[in-house]
Design a protein around this nucleic acid. Structure first.
Lengths: 210, 210, 210, 210
DNA sequence: AATGAATGAGAATTCATTCAT
DNA sequence: CATGAATGAATTCTCATTCAT
């Protein structure tokens, strides 16, 4: 279903080293891309900030675009990890959903820069790679599909099976909006208020209690 | 209150001609920026697509960034115009709001590429210019502030005066959502369905009838 | 002997107008060239400072280099005029020489910027034109040849006929040095002191009284 | 006292290599600047004449102006070196001065093109850099200050202590004159004759024997 | 005669990528 | 494996000159 993860060739053999170096690259590039944008960041800067030479950088990637891919992928991975770690899958679907929504918005808040980065720069990825990166987001929204299913099963949520996917997408939108419209929303809401309000609105639609 | 519109100096004196040429530039650049992005579009491409030489391009702008500014400003202007034209300010606030929301989402739908363009590329504007461009959006959300006030005045909408601005922002979010999450939302909704649903949700919150 | 004066073709017929416009051009260009240098001054700037459009500028010259030529020639002309006006050709050669030397240094002092301009920018003239401009200076040193001859004739100066030309050149050097080494000389001499000293040194060599 | 030498940043780390490459750049640029002038010489020409690509050129300089600075500084350095090497500091001040004056004029003669280069092009340097370059000349005239002091100390020269600096400047003028008025002076003097004459004139003023 | 819009060759500079050491 | 010097295509912007009005 989801695109195959892209494998970036490396001139270096040792997989452990490759991973370590690429982590350095990602760490450095994320900050550079956030502050200067992908195009205004040079490979030299990435190399220097990574702690090694330009030659070494190219031992672990094949092109500057590869760095962007690594960065986007790492951001999605972190987002998914953080989300999954924050969610406790015990309890009713309803209870889990509340917690998950809260976590989503909190994670979005914490990772705002990086989420924006993906939205603003991922278009610079090669077509094929872009498709994979976008698909990666899908996987995250799967978390909510799972939760909604759980709620339907245990009777704590009332929602037509065929609308589950749609609802999961809507939930992702709620989270992203906090980032995209940050400057507008922050004028009126605290993180907590926004979360509270969105939970209320959402549950009004799908919780059984209503 | 809002930032003063930036005036780009031109080497050409005839204001009519300046306007005409800049329209050509904008028309050409919008398409190039949408398809290739700002950084991957060259000034020569802009000139050629505008129908004149690189030298002539620079008679009407001072830097490539000026083109981006012209484009962003033109997009906002068109958005506001379209919206204001679509809205009939006769009737109750409630009725106007419904129409306006419908119009907003339709305009967003029609201008999706251009709205995304602003979100993805406006960060490349000089700080000062960026501020103006962002402020421009504020002006658009003012349309909804006006409508909400109208509804409060005529009793067709029930909403605390101090939440008006917030609500207007939320409405803008609904419109942008349709653009940002297009690929996800389109899988489940038609434009009409999405509009219908958002109107319902919104009015549930603020219409008096509830 | 001296190169023929270069005639710059003009698209305009009326000679009076040509002269008037070219005076405007020279007046404007001299200041621009002094402050910005020939290469950093644009034809547009010259036109604007001259009080007319770029198109009109090119009605009276054929190339930017023509402006440089006009400027150099005008400077030499002014120098010669000023010098000839300052010198009273009555009295002994010795007396005239003293006055002439004083005048030379004063004129050099007053026209320092313009003298430097010729030295720094005339190399940008086309070869042929450059030769004429340099020859123009020769004409000025002829003034001193005349004076020296007068002094020899009336017995107030003692100098071998065959060294006259050399001595005239030396005199020109004295004047130019006040300009070229301005920053060094001004630290130690006033204009008057420098003049006094050079006159003394010179006359020690050639005045009969010694 | 004198301005600090400007340090041009380089992207290359190896100092030995930087020095070597910059020597190549200077060697190439001096000839180009002499023949075509600074403005009419392109960076590509400099790179090609230096024996490497335009990219490599910019690994060793930051701007075209840097090349001009390197060239001016190298010329002054060579002038000072040649002069100091030619002067034997044994003997009376008077004897040293004669030798030094002869050397000065000879060095000026040999380096005429380059001396003119500095006079014609140094105005294109950034203000700050220009100040340093001009100050560099001061250092050279210091050589003569030293010699004059020596002569005063050993009694071979008679000159008021407070006129020493002035006299040193005058000596520099004698040397530069040979360059600036080359075309005029060469018609009448050989290098030797000019030197002889200037030495005679100078010593008439300051040698004790008179 | 005057204007000024249009032109495009050319200039300086940047930067992703390579490859010899 | 790591390094960093070398490369040159590509890019933005300038400006002398032309020519239709």
């Amino acid at each position: 279903m989801s695109e195959k993860r892209k494998t970036i060739p490396s001139l270096v053999k040792d997989p452990k080293l490759i991973e370590k170096r690429r982590e350095q690259i990602i760490e450095a590039a994320v900050h550079l891309f956030i502050h200067k944008g992908f195009h205004k960041t040079t490979t030299r800067e990435i190399a220097r900030a990574s702690g090694f030479s330009i030659g070494t950088l190219y031992e672990y990637i094949e092109s500057k675009e590869d760095v962007l891919y690594l960065v986007c992928d790492a951001i999605h991975a972190e987002m998914e990890t953080r989300l999954r770690e924050a969610i406790n899958f015990n309890g009713t679907g309803l209870k889990i959903l509340k917690l998950a929504l809260k976590s989503l918005i909190r994670v979005m808040d914490q990772m705002g820069d990086r989420v924006l980065l993906i939205y603003q720069e991922s278009k610079s990825l090669p077509k094929e790679t872009l498709r994979y990166v976008l698909g990666r987001e899908e996987e995250i929204s799967q978390i909510f599909v799972e939760i909604l299913h759980r709620g339907i099963a245990d009777g704590s949520l009332r929602i037509d099976e065929k609308h589950v996917k749609l609802m999961a997408d809507n939930i992702m939108v709620l989270g992203e909006m906090w980032v995209f419209r940050r400057w507008a929303l922050h004028k009126h809401y605290s993180l907590e208020e926004y979360t509270e309000k969105q939970i209320t609105l959402l549950l009004r639609e799908i919780s059984v209690s209503e």
